[in-house]
Amino acid sequence: MTDGHAAQALTPAQAFDSLYAFCAPALIRQAYLLTGRRERARAAVERAFQLAWQRWPEVAHDRDPAGWIRATTYECALSPWHRFIPRRRLPDPPPDPVDRAFQRALLRLPPSYRRTLVLYDGVGLDLPETAAETEASTPAAANRLLHAREAVAARLPELADPAELHRRLVRLASAGHLAAAGSPPSSPSPSALAPSASASSSPSVNRPTAGPPIAGPVALRAAGERTSRFWARSAIALTVIIVGATALTLRTAPTHYLAPVSPGRPVQELPAQGMLGPLSQQELKLSTKLRKEAAGGPARLEPEAR
């Protein structure tokens, strides 16, 4: 059976697990370089894989599924909402003072510059790929890369050499990764920031062998499905509320025009009681004359027999 037929024989869950085993360990290291915090790096990787499972048809047919996961991880790691969580603001410093100085220099870079530097000098993407992943033009990506290198070299002159900068990026990522697992630092592999091709042959891997504890692919798929069900139920509930409110409005709304009732107003320009004053002589004569008249008016007319 050819590799193409074997790939087609994979179920969606198996393909997702293979992608997880291929990308997750390296993505934690890369996210640690971007954020300086192991917990934030782990959360970003988990969130990226949850989103990937929710949109698996789109990710599975993407030309570069690993690039899709990496871009989503970077977006989650550099989200500005993290600044509102106090425990995610301060970095986790590596044990070596040299690495700590390098980490401080990295974290002082603007997020877009830091992302470009990690992709080009750390992961090893070429300039057009880096520009595409950062949603920038190639000249803009090149400008960010040059400025990032200059800013790092201004603080650490020994890192002016791109080869040395790459080595230190790999070392810092490996130091933070191993410190989380409680292992002593060792000589990092030159490809420590790149996905491991050998990991893809183990689709049943549930967590990286070192680094921050991260949920396995089964747990991530379950979390993604729970999130999808939650939003689907929320959308249904909101639709039901809108339909109910519309029906209630149609039931209680008037079917014809009702003229508004004008508010009452006091009658103006009438004298208050007791404010007329005494009657004049002429008015007294008229009042006496009226009282002498028959109370019912003129005499009642009665028929007469003739």
Rank of each mutant, 00 (worst) to 15 (best):
I28F: 06
D121P: 02
Y120Q: 09
Q8W: 07
L27W: 11
S79H: 08
R291A: 14
F22K: 02
L238S: 13
F49V: 06
L178G: 01
L270G: 08
P86C: 02
R70K: 07
I242Q: 07
L172F: 02
C23S: 11
V261W: 07
D99L: 13
P65F: 01
R42G: 13
A41D: 01
L119E: 08
R47A: 15
T11S: 15
Q8S: 11
R306I: 14
E225W: 01
A223H: 04
H61F: 13
S112L: 15
P111K: 04
P184W: 08
S186D: 11
G176P: 02
I28H: 07
S262N: 12
W53D: 01
S187E: 15
S79Y: 00
A247T: 12
A253S: 14
F22R: 08
V170G: 10
A153G: 09
P213C: 05
E46L: 05
E302V: 14
S137P: 08
P254L: 04
R167M: 07
A295P: 06
S112E: 15
R168K: 12
T130P: 01
V45F: 04
L106G: 03
R38I: 11
A44S: 13
G36H: 05
Y257N: 10
A181V: 03
A7C: 04
V218A: 14
P111C: 04
A305Y: 10
C23K: 00
P80Q: 01
H177Q: 06
S280E: 06
T138Q: 11
P208Y: 00
Q268L: 13
L178P: 05
R83A: 15
V205P: 00
F16T: 01
A192P: 03
P110S: 11
K292I: 05
D96G: 04
M275W: 12
T116A: 15
L290I: 09
R37M: 07
A235I: 12
R207S: 15
A151K: 06
R229H: 12
G216E: 03
R306G: 13
P212A: 13
F16S: 01
R83V: 15
G216F: 02
V123P: 02
T227Y: 08
Q281S: 13
L90W: 11
L193D: 02
L109N: 05
I241L: 15
L238T: 12
D64G: 11
L169A: 07
R167G: 15
P12R: 02
R226S: 13
S228W: 07
